[in-house]
Design a protein around this nucleic acid. Structure first.
Lengths: 206, 206
DNA sequence: CCTTCCTTTGACCGACTGGTCAAATACTGG
DNA sequence: CCAGTATTTGACCAGTCGGTCAAAGGAAGG
């Protein structure tokens, strides 16, 4: 009986394996078609399971989606949590940009899953945005404000600075096809890291 | 007989009005739910028409979507077309940023329509991206390269500079809910224009 | 071997989807 | 006013959707 309170802690190896299979397949399908655009049949096929079998491990389509989103939210914010107030300000922020861009490179599907959700009004995670996300951002904004007040980085709007970092790094995952269509043969992630480091250095230098 | 070759040039006032009604409603619905997530019933209700009546003016759901995308593509690239090689380089580029941000402020639904399409792999406009879009970008990149070669702007990667402009300006339309969730009461577009002008000035100054 | 519990699935359901069609209704020029 | 055309719609259809269920298949311990 995989459903219920202890669903997150499957007992058997086979439950663990199938849950992972389903979540992996669901990530693939949800991230490329959005929630409504995805179908259980697609996810089942992708996972190599039957549709009723999916619903043996998860109570509904929405439950799979929620599990993905909440499970990913933490990972997604890790690069920001790692921003240390004790470090050298500009180095800390450039390292954050690096980590964020690396996330886009390694986990583009996760990025697109969030992008789909947010572009469509974030109906399922709005509360998390106004809660946990805002809280974390507010905390880091305070750190950035300290740095600007001490003249250690340029006096830029801290919230919009953070939006810039999100926007520029995630762009390479979310709008991948557009970037590639315009670049032609050139690989986006070849030049992007150096470019972003360069411009953020200019933005942050007092 | 509204369908057929001359569909774009309706004769009567009533055809013009209903086509506009439908396209307006479709923009609203497609931009908030994506292509698959949108339904003809939603669009019909939003337009104040019956579903069969929609299909009297457009042959299919996809035809409405295509009409929107192709009709918007031109408008969407106008700010970039207006970038003049004869102007003062930094002023030209900053003005481009301004125009692009203004588009996001005035036409967020159009921005999200494209965002939805591209995040999901641009299945319906990939050819346009590799064709018209790339052509226009290549042309403007040549202009930017001239400016960098002449030392009139900083030596930044021209393609990635353009991606930056797209990314940062469209972010405020596409990820509107997230920006608002984090900012709380503050209005995003209050500080964004000055912030973007400030950082792009830093990026572009040699 | 049998029992018990976990896992898998074919068949099925009601709701909804994009789309059709014939008939009804408005609108137009003569 | 009328004939003809343009517009609108209720009823309907086949396919797909998320989800259910009873029954079948497996694994494990005794």
């Amino acid at each position: 009986m995989p459903d219920g309170q202890d669903a997150k802690r499957p007992r058997t190896r086979i439950q663990q394996r199938n849950r992972d299979l389903i979540l992996g397949a669901a990530l693939e399908v949800f991230s490329t078609h959005g929630f409504r655009g995805a179908t259980l049949d697609q996810i089942a096929t992708e996972a190599g399971l039957s549709k009723p079998n999916l619903l043996y491990y998860f109570p509904s389509k929405e439950a799979i989606h929620n599990e993905l989103l909440s499970g990913l939210m933490d990972t997604w914010l890790d690069p920001m949590r790692a921003l240390e107030s004790s470090g050298e300000p500009i180095a800390e922020l450039l390292a954050y940009v690096d980590r964020k861009l690396e996330m886009s490179r390694l986990y583009p599907r996760e990025s697109r899953l969030f992008a789909n959700e947010i572009v469509q009004g974030a109906p399922r995670i709005l509360e998390a945005l106004k809660g946990d996300l805002k809280e974390l951002v507010d905390e880091k904004v305070a750190v950035i404000r300290d740095w600007t007040n001490q003249g250690k980085i340029a006096d830029v709007h801290p919230y919009h600075l953070i939006f810039s970092i999100w926007s520029l790094t995630q762009h390479y995952a979310d709008f991948d096809v557009q970037v590639r269509a315009v670049l032609g043969e050139e690989e986006p992630f070849d030049a992007a890291p150096a470019y972003l480091r360069e411009i953020f250095l200019k933005i942050l230098t007092p």
